[in-house]
Simulated assay, not measured.
Amino acid sequence: MVEQNILVLDDDKDLCNMVKMTLEHEGFVVDTAYDGNTGLSLVEKKSYLTIILDIMLPEMDGWEVCYKIRNLTNNNKVPIVMLTAKVDEDDKIMGLKLGADDYITKPFSPRELVARVRALIRREQDFKKADETLEKGELIVDSQSYKVYVKNQELDLPPKEFELIYLLVKNAGRVFTREDILEKIWGFSFAGGTRTVDEHIKRLRRKLENHSDYNYIQTVWGVGYKLEVKKDVE
């Protein structure tokens, strides 16, 4: 059985200990780190189911840690929850741009944190259990490996971008509102609102179009988005 490893990265030692005790009570194995360099070193050496990451860290802030995790050779798809006192929407969008999967603001309920962590882990495991390969045009989506290929070249997608393209490809032609996508990908009313969806769509489109002669994600004005393969017209 794979250990239920979670990393908590926050310079507030009391908060780290509280989160550690809460998660260990739920059966997880928890490592803690109090600065960005130490946390990144742990991620390079050990696999985690989820990382809980504060923004305001000494030596290397949480945004930089998040960015560097997403650019590692291994363990770069681990779900990341940003745990922070920052409440500005632009800060939340910045974290998502760098590859964070979820955001929880301080003060927070330990019960809410556990629920968010379990939801992220469950969603990733559900995708892998599906064990299916979807194809549209030059696009291949493999749920087992959590990988996406265009013209047999792997795209570098963090977990939420993978889940978004999987949803659209599996339901090709169906129009999803932004609210639909928030519910299906994040599983709750995310604090970043529908801007979160637009930012993910924008990044996903750019990655797909940089590697393909086709456009895949179409905007249905006034409604939302759908997957439909169209030849790129210069």
Rank of each mutant, 00 (worst) to 15 (best):
E135R: 12
A191W: 05
L120D: 01
D126H: 11
V117C: 01
K207D: 02
D180G: 00
E209K: 13
R206F: 09
R118V: 14
D126R: 11
I165E: 09
Y146M: 15
R205N: 11
S143N: 04
A119Y: 00
A100D: 08
R174C: 05
V175H: 06
G193Q: 08
K207N: 03
R178T: 09
F127W: 05
Y146W: 10
I104C: 09
L157V: 10
T105K: 10
E124A: 05
L113E: 03
I104Y: 12
V117A: 03
A172M: 09
R118G: 10
G173W: 07
D213G: 14
Y166Q: 11
K147N: 04
I121P: 02
L208Q: 05
N171S: 05
A119C: 02
S145R: 15
T196S: 15
I104K: 10
F162Q: 02
A130P: 08
K147T: 07
K106H: 08
E124L: 02
D142I: 08
V150I: 09
A119W: 00
K128A: 15
P159N: 07
I121W: 02
N152C: 12
G187L: 06
V175G: 03
V175R: 12
I121H: 03
Q125P: 07
P107S: 07
V197F: 11
R206V: 09
R178P: 05
I185G: 00
E132I: 08
Q125T: 08
G187N: 05
L134K: 13
D180L: 00
A119N: 04
I201N: 06
K147P: 05
A191F: 07
E132K: 13
K160T: 11
A172L: 02
R178L: 04
F127N: 05
P159M: 12
R122S: 01
L139D: 09
L167R: 01
E112F: 03
A191E: 10
I121S: 02
D102S: 06
D142V: 09
Y146I: 11
H200K: 15
I181T: 03
D213C: 14
I181K: 01
I181M: 02
F188N: 04
N152A: 14
R203T: 07
L155W: 07
G173M: 02
K202C: 14
K136I: 15
